[in-house]
């Protein structure tokens, strides 16, 4: 369990986080808010990259103020927005092995973890490829594998689908779903409301460093999102106009409509 108790964070005389409480277990939580609302600053507190000015952050009982980022990286993995900011090794295998090597694991254990992590993100057979030669989605999945190989219980993904085309985005979403089903707690930092609708179980909304909402995704989409600079997903708008209420995917909408669409068009 991640427990955040009333954290404040001040940087350059500016209070970036103002008294945030938060709890997270093995669930998918979306962290949303406008640019500058404090999302990334908050997330960086969860793996100890930033320490709170006041208040506390505990990850499975470990106070982040008393442990290094390296120690906390066994528990909380952080996938940065631009995966290329991680890559420096000559091939995919060595890139994924970097984290486990830092943990001081044996050669056999490192190899086993690399193979397992690459399988988990569907990158088997890519071991000898250069990280920079991969496509956008493959790079994002490689970045996830790099963090996954450290077997963290919680994974933070910063804008995992930004800049990806539909197919690559889909492959990343599938990976996130698989990780969750395997018991990882996932924190998604995102502006993508379609992704929130589809993946998140809970949403925390930040505004100017304050938590303004923390609750189930359905309740989140009933808020007046325009006031926070956010848009409702088109799927949700369409579903409500069709009288189908809250749905999370096109498939769910079709099911609710009983196979029949607008203007009598038959849906598959």
């Amino acid at each position: 369990m991640i427990r955040v108790k009333n954290i404040h964070f001040t940087y350059n005389d500016r209070e970036v986080l103002r008294g945030i409480d938060f709890r997270m277990g093995n669930e998918i939580v979306a962290l949303v808010g406008q640019n500058g609302s404090g999302k990334t600053t908050f997330a960086k507190h969860l793996n100890g990259l930033l320490k709170p000015t006041s208040g506390s952050v505990e990850v499975d009982g470990l106070d982040t103020r008393e442990h290094t980022v390296a120690e906390l990286s066994r528990l909380v993995g952080y996938v940065f927005q631009n995966p290329e900011h991680m890559f420096f090794e000559e091939n995919v295998f060595r890139e994924v092995a970097f984290g486990p090597k830092n943990l001081g694991l044996s050669e056999d254990e490192i190899e086993a973890r690399v193979r397992w992590a690459l399988k988990a993100v569907n990158l088997e057979g890519y071991e000898e490829r250069t990280p920079y030669s991969l496509s956008g989605g493959e790079k994002q999945r490689l970045a996830i594998a790099c963090v996954l190989a450290m077997k963290p219980r919680y994974i933070i993904l910063d804008e995992p689908t930004t800049g990806l085309d539909a197919r690559n985005s889909e492959s990343v979403i599938e990976t996130i779903g698989r990780l969750h089903s395997e018991g990882h707690g996932i924190l998604l930092i995102t502006h993508d409301m379609e992704l929130v609708l589809r993946m998140a179980e809970r949403v925390m909304l930040l505004k100017e460093g304050r938590k303004v909402f923390d609750g189930p995704v359905e309740e989140f989409f009933s808020l007046e999102l325009g006031a926070y600079g956010l848009d409702r997903p088109e799927l949700l708008e369409a579903s409500e106009r069709l009288g189908a209420g809250f749905v999370r995917s096109v498939g769910e909408l079709m099911k609710k409509l009983g196979g029949e669409g607008v203007d009598g068009a038959v849906l598959p």
Binding site: K44, N47, A70, Y78, F80, F98, V147, M150
Partner: peptide, 10 residues
């Protein structure tokens, strides 16, 4: 540096 620290780099 933050990204690499998150991978246990010290």
């Amino acid at each position: 540096m933050d990204a690499q620290k998150s991978r246990g780099w010290e």
